[in-house]
Design a protein around this nucleic acid. Structure first.
Lengths: 340, 340
DNA sequence: TTGTAAGCGTTATCAC
DNA sequence: GTGATAACGCTTACAA
């Protein structure tokens, strides 16, 4: 069976191509009779209008681009990104949009940048981190196509964004530790020069403060979100601050590294040391011991970002465009009162 | 600055639109002089031809679809899928193809299936697992667009596929255990009714055999590739076969679950029990203890699949279309000779 | 070597 | 309510 086009359908239904188009797009001004004739043909031949031609005519592709940094394999492999993408994908497809996932790296040739961000093929863009946001915003500074980002960036106040309440999450984590009686609590953070880190650090600080514990800057390290950084930083803490009895890690991956460092030194968790993570990744449930962590709605962040983007694409003017989702403390087995 | 099209470029360069098209597509038969004039304009205005229009004219979109099952969040989060996708993406983009990643579920409405697999928008498809392959192959049984899959499926011998040598991987893993002196070795596998499992099981069996150990069917369980299954199955083994001293897990996630079960019972790894995984995921390095595993080139599988697909799309006739990549034993800290 | 003109398969405008 | 017809922006015979 030949693949047919709108003209052939029109012929078969004894109408003009415009009528077919109207029927397919639910436009008014088409007689009930014509509609049924057209639909009969459409169903019989399972006709689907060619979406490329439609894109050319309407100047919109119904495709959303998702952009993230070409991070290392280790960071990529932690489940956070897949879950975020899944949230985006499912919301988009539900609303009839395709989604194209691209990894971006400043070191790739310019042609690839242009290819990835090819505006003819994209109706909107979701940026998953700051580096990429900067790049996309700069390229689309004339607002030709809408951009939304996951995570807030104070440099781009006019851009819609979704994030978890980082302050609140960190606060809850550290408060849990102080409530347990810990007084010397390390903090491992993941990303320099980013509001997220600033907020998490403030949450950490406030929780300490509210428990009457003074903040010690040496107990705080900003690295990156890899397991390796968690491992390294934990070793550093253990070498220099024997009084420390607990650590707040700003990601589950960081916590995973910290747990390994503790294990290698034979320091039992949670009996002799407590650790709390951030993210609530699926794998955190199977760490040893199962990680107490701050669960954030990763999937939900993605879905919400997609929802915002599609609203923007439809031309709706969003007033409340910086959305914060609330994280929850998820208690498992990696925390206990301090030893002694 | 207005966005320009090929006609405007032609006007500015004082040539016809066909000349512009020819220089943009590196076609022959264009004078050096015309070429430089065109390129001058192209560069000055940074002109990029509209790819949607090009798609319509050439009947090809330069887009590749990647299809995978809408698996649970836990399975999604293990890093395997992200890595595989990264391999596909980077090879595609290098060759100038976009890639669209979609999750497929048999339970979603038919409109979504049609949307996801919309052939007008796709020049080729890479299937990441069997369920999805079946669906795609059935939809494109007339070979309108090429399909390649990751993992071999004997039901579709004519389709190009890439996989790791599952037999060899399992063999190496279990041989490592028998070489260490283990005699009672469990096997946890991940996917019923799939050639992959068959092959891994055969590898496990052969290694046992080559070491003069008889195969015990009770020591073998086929579940799914989740941490939870590893956890559950390990508990089952521990409850029923106290003589068992080691286990081969057909994925790192399975091993992660097994490790947790062992930990909860206070059975030290590797002192009292050895475990080896399969995959070599980035997270396996940070398990407790760091996992000895069979490292397969996940990224490479993706890249190779993309390479095959693009060859097919270019019309090359591939003879050697079932490719096997060789996995390696990666020794870390989860194995030791049996206790006593 | 170059230019003209005919597609590609839609949507959208505007007479009828 | 309907149907020509003109876009949309490109590629590609074919003629010059």
């Amino acid at each position: 069976m030949e693949r047919l086009n709108i003209d052939k359908v029109a012929k078969l239904a004894h109408v003009s191509r415009s009528v077919v188009s109207r029927v397919l797009n639910n436009h008014p001004n088409v007689s009930e009779e014509a509609r049924t004739r057209v639909m009969a043909v459409v169903n019989e031949y399972n006709f689907k209008p060619n979406s490329v031609a439609r894109s050319l005519a309407t100047q919109s592709t119904f495709q959303v681009g998702v952009l993230t940094s070409r991070i290392g394999e280790e960071s990529l492999g932690n489940g956070y990104w897949s879950l975020l993408y899944l949230g985006i994908f499912e919301e988009c497809i539900r609303q009839g949009y395709y989604v194209r996932l691209s990894f971006f790296s400043t070191s790739m040739p310019k042609e690839l940048h242009d290819l990835i961000l090819n505006e003819d093929h994209l109706d909107g863009i979701i940026c998953l981190n700051e580096e990429v946001t900067e790049f996309a915003v700069q390229k689309f500074d004339d607002h030709r196509i809408p951009v939304v980002m996951v995570g807030h960036n104070p440099n781009y106040p006019e851009i819609c964004s979704v994030d978890v309440d980082n302050y609140s999450g960190a606060y809850k984590a550290v408060k849990h530790l102080t409530d347990l009686g810990h007084k010397y609590i390390g903090g491992i953070f993941g990303d320099q020069n980013v509001e997220e880190t600033e907020n998490r650090k403030n949450g950490y600080r406030s929780a300490l403060n509210d428990s009457g514990i003074s903040f010690n800057n040496q107990f705080t390290v900003i690295a990156d979100y890899s397991q390796h950084s968690g491992y390294q930083t934990m070793n550093h803490f253990l070498d220099h601050f024997p009084e420390m009895t607990a650590v707040f890690c700003a990601s589950d991956t960081l916590a995973m590294g910290a747990l390994l460092a503790l294990y290698e030194r034979g320091i039992e968790v949670p009996a002799r040391f407590s650790v709390v993570g951030f993210d609530g990744l699926p794998i955190s449930k199977y760490m040893i011991p199962p990680l107490t962590t701050i669960e954030q709605p990763v999937y939900g962040k993605g879905a919400k970002a997609a929802e915002l983007l599609i609203s923007c694409m439809r031309g709706e003017d969003l007033k409340k465009n910086q959305i914060n989702l609330e994280p929850q403390l998820l208690i498992r087995k990696s925390c206990a009162p301090p030893y002694n």
